[in-house]
Nucleic acid binder design. Structure first.
Lengths: 188, 188, 188, 188
DNA sequence: ATATAACCGAGACGGTACGTCAGGTCTTAGG
DNA sequence: CCTAAGACCTGACGTACCGTCTCGGTTATAT
């Protein structure tokens, strides 16, 4: 079925490592395909066989850098949600802002990149959505609005602060968001 | 004291106008210094005499793009807020997304650009904050969270959809946000 | 061993042809790298891959321009010499003066260019030298001076008029030179 | 008659000195008008008021660098001529070759420059012509050719060597030229 | 004494070219 | 079918230079 010389599996790792180093130094703009290939000791063609553009390379890079968020929903939707939002905020603020902005820009320019980038956030946001729905069913949360909207109001402000106002994403801020969206916890 | 030929004051305007048009079409990356100069009917050197790089040009451009949004608060904070959010959403969705993303990216890279860009949104967001504060005082809105956070939850989702999820910014969506944040209107 | 895509051999020719045309029109100063590349239907980088600067391009160009002048010595050295000098004069005056001057200037600046340029004239001057030597042996010409000096006195005035005094190089003038150097023809 | 503020006579000297230094370092191409003006502590306009172009500046510079050749014709045309040719050769070889070539090139491009440059050589060559004519009248030199042609054969080879073949201009060579043109001196 | 004309410094301006760099595609030889 | 190497195209970048121009301000001479 698959004939010919197989891909050297080690190459991908070397390329991503090289790209990571480049990204670390000069950001998205400072990342040069030529330099990445050279640093990895690989021909440019070999890189392009794996990712069709600089944007895709970076998407893959980010994807590889992201640690799986092992998330086990408990019986406490409110607690779960807080954990999730705090984790997302932490993840965002530990990534160079310009990178995230660049990914957004690349997404806006090229729909295919957009798809990849959205896939990048997908599981985090999916997890949030799931928990919010669960909370709604449990009656903890206002049910007169769609869960997607609540998610937007939990996660959107994080990106907003990051990309627009430039204010910091502290865990406290994340918890305040929770409070505002879910309302104060009822004392039993 | 030492003067020399004064700068042609009309040129700066023509350059910024040309740059604005370029930016509108192709975003930050698509803005070419050569084309800007040509479109303005000016030598490239004349442009570089004013701004030392593409980045500086864009900073100045953004600063110059800031338009006043005449907003007259009425006695109905809820109505005012809806108008504002819908207007902001309309403004955002009528601007090329990539441009907004590029501005965010440029902001993240260069603090000076960030300052300019934030100033760009300042009026609008300021108006929202003012009205939210007023609504809180009138008891229309939950008062257990800072007004700034409520603003984030009204405006943030707009940018989030625009830059991250790519979903459309309909007036309906804006109204739904309002509903979620302020709660359903009380029937008198 | 390490190959890569081979250079397109046709390109060099096209570039040199384009450069020759440019040189013919505007001399060294008028030769624009951008125009040469454009005329050759080639990217500027492709040109720079071959020659690192305008000067190097011109060196190569001159080297390539060297044409053979088929000259068959007869039994009549005096006639041969006249033919040669008249031909050289005609060649010189049909070439734009500024080009020749530019070549001289470039030669003076860069020894490598000088070498190329000298090689350019080599055949012609070599032929003159040969015939002069032959004429000396035949006793037609003064033998108390080295043939090289006589050649200088036949060819030098041509360049002198061209580059210094600006006077025209007529065939008559060439013949007058001959007469002065060889003396009047003896009537048999 | 001549109203207005008179030119500052010191400036011309400073400009020429600055230009000379520039020329010494980088040749004609390396001479930058801006730098000359700056080095002379003078505005560019002030320079252009004196010379209309870089070429004219250089012409004036050369003219200013040329020392008067005080030449007193004696009763010995042969000796006079030798002196003259040797002096000219010395003058030429003490000037950077590229400069002379550049002047020739500039002359070919611009007739006005040509005129200036020719004026530069005028008196030297005029002196040679005068002495040659005198020698012809005295019967020392072949009279079947115009004096101008003999001059060309004495002076032309100097420029030829300088600009074309690149061979050195030794006093010996100058004397050999003399010998060839005038013939061996008759022993009385 | 007061125009007036030409000077001077400073620097903007248009135009043209330079050489470099980046992203992406294509071509060849070899594994 | 992959890899390596590198040529190629497109297009932009920022710099340098030339020669012109437009200022404010400074001398001189001519009226």
């Amino acid at each position: 079925m698959t004939r010919g010389r197989p891909r050297d599996t080690a190459i991908e790792g070397r390329l991503l490592a090289a790209a990571a180093e480049e990204l670390r130094r000069g950001g998205y703009e400072g990342l040069s395909i030529d330099r990445v290939a050279e640093r990895a000791g690989v021909a440019k063609t070999t890189l392009y066989r794996r990712w069709a553009s600089k944007a895709e390379l970076v998407v893959a890079l980010i994807a590889s850098m992201r640690e799986e968020i092992p998330f086990e929903p408990s019986d406490d939707p409110r607690g779960d949600l807080t954990t999730l939002v705090v984790t997302i905020a932490a993840g965002l603020s530990s990534t160079p802002t310009s990178l995230i902005a660049d990914l957004a820009a690349a997404s806006a320019r090229d729909p295919r990149v957009g798809e990849s980038v959205r896939a990048l956030w997908a599981d985090r946001h999916g997890a949030v959505t799931a928990v919010v729905a669960k909370a709604q069913q449990a009656g903890i949360v206002l049910s007169h609005v769609a869960p997607a909207v609540l998610v937007d109001q939990l996660v959107g402000p994080l990106y907003y602060r990051l990309l627009v106002t430039g204010e910091p994403l502290t865990p406290d801020y994340a918890r305040t968001l929770m409070l505002s969206v879910l309302g104060p916890e009822e004392s039993p």
